[in-house]
Design a protein around this nucleic acid. Structure first.
Lengths: 183, 183
DNA sequence: ATTGAAGTGGAATCCTGATTCCGATTCTAG
DNA sequence: CTAGAATCGGAATCAGGATTCCACTTCAAT
């Protein structure tokens, strides 16, 4: 039913939006996204009712990918590693993608919209990894989910901001994770 | 020379702006600031050429306070504690004050405006505390300033965002700081 | 090849604030 | 107490962007 060119354009918009929103965050202009997609603003709006909707589409997709990865790690049989790997993945993934801040914020609380479900999933995924890691003695037992989420958020936000000299981010993260290990 | 009432109004504006910008960040409206100050927008503009200027005035003042505290801690003769205390102070101070994000960002890099000098001072202050703490064996020797700044920024940003259940922030920060201690 | 529905481009419109302007009000020096 | 300067207040002006509209293309089913 859907016209082939329409589908193609939708893709182009999505890709352009991902790039532009990633670089500039929510403050990016719809015009810019349209230009980069090689399309008129009107077309962008035909596919996504609003800037917010476009943004959500992108974030939702990305979070789904992360959730899939979390599931995979959970079943990897390496609980001691899985938690740290996922934590790192999220932070690295956030680096340079300003569009994530809100996603993380949402994961924290914010029962807004339908994304609430996704946020809950994310929390659960992290909680699972955390528990198993603690069970395996890889993470200090006094660390609870809320604290982990706060740290994850902080790390992600820091990673998104400014460009650090090579290695700084990795080392910072390493220190942070060390703080989560048993004494 | 300056009219007494003008001085008073300037103060009112400053106080109101501090409150409003603290709660809502840069997105706060000038109208709101004026209303809270019990003054017309025009008056706000008579004292501060632009929203940015008003914002800078506030941040600059606050950072100066922090610098003073840093100096005091440096001379306290408690290097083992000073570093952690200051780190904590900055984060706690940032909690709920959305206006700081940018200040911290600036402290990171951003040679913008005259604030560049202040940013440099802040970096130096932290560096001093860090070195002494390491000298005293309270902080792992492989932690360098850039990493510390990244962590400080992340922690501050996380603290500013959303409201966490009581204690979460403190515990998160405790874990983070544990990661900076020698093994 | 033909045609009406679906899709497109991008100028025009709307909205939301920041900033400007200026007549009305205080101050305060004399 | 009085005049002139310094301030005020807040309506009017501007500007930046999101969103809407619609005449004009493209599709693709027939």
């Amino acid at each position: 039913m859907a016209r082939s060119d329409a589908v193609r354009n939708r893709e182009k918009v999505l890709r352009a939006a991902e790039a532009v929103l990633g670089e500039q965050g929510l403050s990016a202009r719809m015009d810019e996204i349209a230009r980069r997609a090689g399309v008129g603003v009107g077309t962008v709006y035909r596919h996504f009712a609003t800037k917010e909707a476009l943004y959500q589409a992108i974030v939702t997709a990305r979070v789904d990918e992360l959730l899939a990865e979390a599931a995979q790690l959970r079943d990897s049989g390496e609980p001691r590693t899985a938690f740290f790997t996922f934590f790192t993945r999220v932070v690295v993934d956030a680096a340079g993608k300003k569009a994530y801040i809100d996603a993380l914020r949402t994961a924290g609380i914010d029962p807004k919209a339908g994304q609430a479900g996704q946020a809950a999933e994310m929390r659960k995924a992290i909680d699972d990894l955390l528990r198993e890691a603690q069970q395996a003695g890889a993470v200090r037992p006094d660390a609870a989910l809320p604290e982990i989420l706060a740290l994850l958020r902080g790390a992600s936000m820091a990673a998104e901001t400014g460009d650090y000299p090579a290695g700084v981010l990795d080392r910072s993260l390493a220190f942070l994770l060390d703080g989560l290990r048993p004494a």
